[in-house]
């Protein structure tokens, strides 16, 4: 089961500032618990879509922290429009959440 992301998107002078908090364990695969290694489990791709168009993709690895925070900006968004964020992890699990640009 995955938990919802918290997404905030604000437009100013045609530039949309997007801030995303994702809930994810982000296990590095380096950690040992009770004598057994904990398998790697991390988000390896983040895609941001605005009006069906990809405005950002990110390839992530195990060095990104637990419950990661991501901020980026893009041009061309307007208030009231939607921005969708999708993450996919190395287990193939994914989650998409949407927010309205304010």
């Amino acid at each position: 089961m995955t938990s919802p992301m918290r997404i905030r998107a604000n437009v100013r002078d045609g530039v949309v500032d997007v801030r995303v908090l994702m809930a994810h364990e982000m296990e590095t695969g380096q950690r040992v618990e009770n004598g057994r290694p904990v398998p790697a489990w991390f988000i390896n791709e983040v895609v941001a879509t605005h009006n069906g168009k990809t405005v950002m993709t990110a390839q992530w690895g195990p060095a990104v922290s637990k419950n990661p925070y991501l901020q980026f900006r893009f041009r061309g968004g307007a208030a009231g429009e939607k921005i969708a964020i999708k993450w996919t992890d190395n287990r193939g699990e994914s989650r998409t959440d949407e927010a309205t640009i304010a």
Binding site: R6, R19, A23
Partner: peptide
């Protein structure tokens, strides 16, 4: 302060 993951816990 910018992105406090406590928000995720608040939502839960």
């Amino acid at each position: 302060q910018q992105g406090n993951p406590a928000e995720l816990f608040e939502a839960q």
